[in-house]
């Protein structure tokens, strides 16, 4: 087993282990902090796939933004630590059905996809410029739509925050 494989399995174990804690932990804060390691592990896997831009964006957006937001929400909510989280199984039949459907779809996609494996090693030096070029040329419309969605969210947040001033 070479160094690459060792690191891969290390990150895989970190990701899966933390994800398990996220799902099964009875403490919301523990789940939130375990999410940190799950996201970190995924970023590591991206690095191993030579997707450095994606890995760093993963860290920046999920760890630096979303996770902080989640933690803020958890910490600022009163009595959040007293909430007893239920992890027992309820509604067995629909759950099994949905789970089977979902995992079936994922496995189906996994098997049916014709995975592209590049013969040449990826030139890491060019990932960022390539992504930048593509976002502003080929995928300009989705990019702009995403920005508009964010802008709408911002305006909405400002509206909600300033509402009491009118009355």
């Amino acid at each position: 087993m070479d160094l690459y494989a060792i690191i891969f399995y290390l990150f895989a174990v970190i990701t899966l282990g933390s994800a398990t804690i996220v799902v099964f932990s009875k403490n919301v804060v523990y789940s939130a902090f375990a999410l940190l390691f799950a996201l970190f592990g995924v970023a590591g896997l991206y690095v191993l796939l030579m997707a450095d831009f994606l890995a760093i964006t993963q860290l920046l957006v999920y760890v630096g933004g979303i996770l902080v937001l989640v933690l803020f929400g958890v910490m600022l909510t009163t009595k959040v630590f007293d909430v007893q989280m239920k992890t027992k199984t309820i509604q067995m039949v629909p759950a099994v059905a949905i789970l089977g459907l979902l995992s079936g779809t994922i496995v189906g996609v996994f098997w049916s996809t014709d995975w592209y494996i590049s013969e040449n090693p990826i030139d890491v030096a060019k990932t960022a410029p390539q992504i930048g070029n593509m976002l502003l040329t080929t995928y300009l419309l989705p990019f702009e739509i995403a920005s508009v969605v964010l802008l709408v969210a911002l305006i909405g947040a400002a509206m909600i925050a300033r509402r009491e001033r009118k009355g």
Binding site: L59, G64, L67
Partner: peptide, 10 residues
């Protein structure tokens, strides 16, 4: 570096 510094916040 910007991304790593978000770990400090956490």
């Amino acid at each position: 570096i910007i991304a790593a510094s978000s770990l400090v916040v956490i």
